[in-house]
Amino acid sequence: MFAAIGLLGVFICVFGSFMIFGGKIGIILEALPGEFMTIGGAAICGFMVANSTHTIKQALGAVKRIFPGAKFHKKEYMELLSLLYQILKTMKTKGVLAIEQHIEKPLESNIFNAYPSIMKDPFTVKFIADYLRMFSIGVDNPHELEALMEQEIDKAKHEDLHSSHAFQTMADAMPALGIVAAVLGVIKTMASITEPPEVLGKLIGGALVGTFMGIFLSYCIIAPIASRLKGVAEEENQFYHVIRAAITSHLAGYAPQVSIEAARKKVPTEYMPDFNELEEALSAIS
């Protein structure tokens, strides 16, 4: 919500103040199509040159994450901790073989399906199942398993950050593209040097719109989008560190309750349930 309010506020503050203090918005609107074609078109084409097809598709898909933000909130963390507790408790009381059917076919598992918020994220389900499977086939060194999990978590974060890097690169280029558009406008103005002052003034104003648009799009629109996507990727990545903490703590020999408490400490502060709240939720699990 705040992202939408912020973007709306940018337009109101920039263009609203311009008109309130005597600016003629008509000059900007008249020059906008040509300047936007020069700046926006060049930026989009450069974006296509600089990035792979996969990154372009990923970046375009990531735009929808700007307004809702990270997909994991307190509800998802509570379900994740409850799921991990149920799995670890089953392993502790009934042995590793008791969860084999659940990790081999998690989509058909009554344990996994009891937590619909987790089932909505295929990567989370696969991540949990893969490392529990490794545990079940004999990987019993917590440090080795933790290192493997860290590698995959870092890889996922690196790939998820491609979108923000792509938009940031575009934002960095925008001011220079604005200068290109302005220079083209000056060239056009010089070709009409014999025109009366009111015509020249309009042409020069249109040329300066290019510089304005390049800076405006860079620092007020695209760079904030890049920063927002980076923050979302980093926040969502923390979800998998919670899983890592629970599984490696269990592998180190801790009781399920202790392992889940170690995982709870990895939850971002704004979403972290307090000890009693989580204890009440876990006590309801059979």
Score class of each variant (00 low, 15 high):
K157T: 14
I137W: 07
N141P: 04
K157Q: 14
I153M: 06
Y131F: 13
F72S: 15
L84E: 07
E152V: 11
E76I: 00
T93N: 11
F67M: 05
F112Y: 05
G61T: 04
D121H: 05
P116Q: 01
N113M: 09
K64A: 08
Y77G: 01
D154P: 07
A114L: 07
Y85K: 02
G61E: 03
I118M: 01
F123P: 13
V96A: 07
K120G: 10
L80I: 00
D140S: 15
T124D: 09
V139W: 13
L145F: 07
E150Y: 11
E104T: 14
A70H: 12
K64R: 14
I99N: 02
P68S: 01
K94L: 10
K64W: 08
E108Y: 03
L161R: 15
L145Y: 05
H73K: 15
L97D: 03
T93D: 13
K74M: 08
L148D: 06
M78Q: 12
I128T: 04
M78E: 10
K94S: 13
D140L: 15
K64M: 09
Q101W: 06
T90A: 14
G95W: 06
A129Q: 02
I118A: 00
E108I: 05
K57S: 08
D130R: 08
I87P: 05
Y85D: 02
M91E: 09
V96N: 02
P68A: 09
K89T: 12
H143V: 10
E108M: 08
M149R: 03
L148F: 13
I118S: 00
S136E: 00
L83K: 02
H143I: 11
L107A: 11
I111N: 03
T93L: 12
Q151Y: 10
I137A: 05
I87Y: 14
S117C: 12
L148R: 14
A156R: 15
E144S: 12
Q86E: 14
G69F: 03
L80P: 03
L88H: 06
Y131S: 03
L84D: 06
K155I: 13
R133H: 11
I128G: 03
K155F: 12
L88Y: 10
E104A: 13
E150A: 13
I137H: 09
P116T: 03
M134F: 12
N141S: 08
P142R: 00
P106Q: 01
I66Q: 10
K92W: 12
E79L: 00
K89W: 11
M78G: 07
I111P: 03
A147F: 07
K75H: 10
Y131C: 02
K89L: 15
L145Q: 04
A59S: 13
I118Y: 01
A62K: 14
Q58R: 11
G69T: 04
K74F: 02
S117F: 01
P122E: 05
K75S: 11
D154I: 08
Q151I: 11
Y85C: 06
V63F: 14
G138N: 02
M91D: 09
E104R: 09
M134H: 11
T124V: 09
